[in-house]
Amino acid sequence: MTLPVISPVEARKMVAGGARLIDIRSPDEFARARIPGSENRPVDAMGRVGDAPAVVYHCRSGMRTAANAERLAAASECPAYLLEGGLDAWRAAGLPVAEDRKAPIEIMRQVQIAAGSLVVLGIALGLMVQPAFLGLSAFVGAGLVFAGTTGWCGMAKLLAALPWNRRAAA
């Protein structure tokens, strides 16, 4: 089932009329930037949503809400809509966004930075120092394949435990 898609201006009018604005991103993404007044209800932990005349779901770009439209529709006990273009479109429309630049960047971006750095390091060391260092790149690549197929990422778990991420997890 697809949900109707509405523009940021339409969404703002609906919220002013009592609709709930629900951000389906992860808590670490929500901590860094959010639409004022939105609720954080990650899609993987979504429960029933009702007690409002309508609900408007959003993510960062609109991709996650579109991909999960059927699940979001099933969770809605009232009319539900998707914010076209998500938080990015809301910001582009000149609407207010609450940002906390002191909050750590999202865990998955940290994983991408760390994994990419380790692959480049392994290749550089393998070419300039000792070919055995190429194993580092292979190990990181295998870890990413494992994370993609199982949904469990050891690097994300490790990064989440580091001191700069503890505030966002709380």
Rank of each mutant, 00 (worst) to 15 (best):
A114W: 01
A114Q: 06
A114S: 13
A114K: 04
A114Y: 02
A115G: 13
A115W: 06
A115R: 05
G116K: 07
G116T: 10
G116P: 01
S117G: 15
S117H: 08
S117R: 01
S117M: 14
L118E: 01
L118I: 07
L118P: 00
V120A: 15
V120S: 02
V120W: 02
V120R: 02
V120K: 01
L121V: 13
L121W: 00
L121F: 12
G122H: 00
G122Q: 00
G122L: 01
I123G: 00
A124E: 03
A124I: 14
A124Q: 06
A124V: 15
A124Y: 08
L125I: 04
L125Q: 02
L125N: 00
L125P: 00
G126F: 01
G126A: 07
L127N: 11
M128N: 10
M128F: 14
M128I: 10
M128R: 10
M128D: 03
V129R: 05
Q130M: 11
P131D: 08
P131N: 09
P131Y: 09
A132I: 14
A132T: 11
A132E: 13
A132C: 06
F133Q: 05
F133N: 00
L134C: 04
L134A: 13
L134N: 02
L134F: 15
L134D: 00
G135M: 14
G135T: 10
G135S: 14
L136R: 01
L136T: 01
L136S: 05
L136A: 03
L136D: 00
S137Q: 06
S137N: 08
A138S: 13
F139E: 05
F139S: 06
F139P: 02
F139K: 07
V140L: 06
V140A: 08
V140S: 06
G141A: 11
G141D: 06
G141P: 04
G141E: 02
G141K: 03
A142Y: 13
A142W: 12
A142G: 14
A142F: 15
A142M: 13
G143R: 03
G143W: 01
G143A: 11
G143K: 03
G143N: 09
L144E: 02
L144T: 05
L144K: 04
V145G: 09
F146H: 15
F146T: 11
F146M: 13
F146Y: 14
A147F: 04
A147S: 15
A147H: 04
A147D: 07
A147G: 15
G148K: 09
G148R: 09
T149R: 12
T149P: 01
T149D: 03
T149E: 08
T150F: 06
T150K: 08
T150D: 09
T150R: 07
T150V: 08
G151M: 09
G151A: 11
W152F: 15
W152E: 08
G154N: 11
G154V: 08
M155I: 09
M155V: 10
K157Y: 13
K157R: 14
K157Q: 15
K157C: 11
L158C: 08
L158R: 06
L158K: 08
L158G: 05
L159E: 05
L159Y: 06
L159W: 03
L159P: 00
A160P: 01
A160F: 03
A160S: 15
A160Q: 13
A161Q: 13
A161T: 11
L162D: 09
L162E: 09
P163C: 12
P163R: 11
W164L: 12
W164H: 15
W164E: 12
W164T: 07
W164R: 13
N165P: 05
N165Q: 11
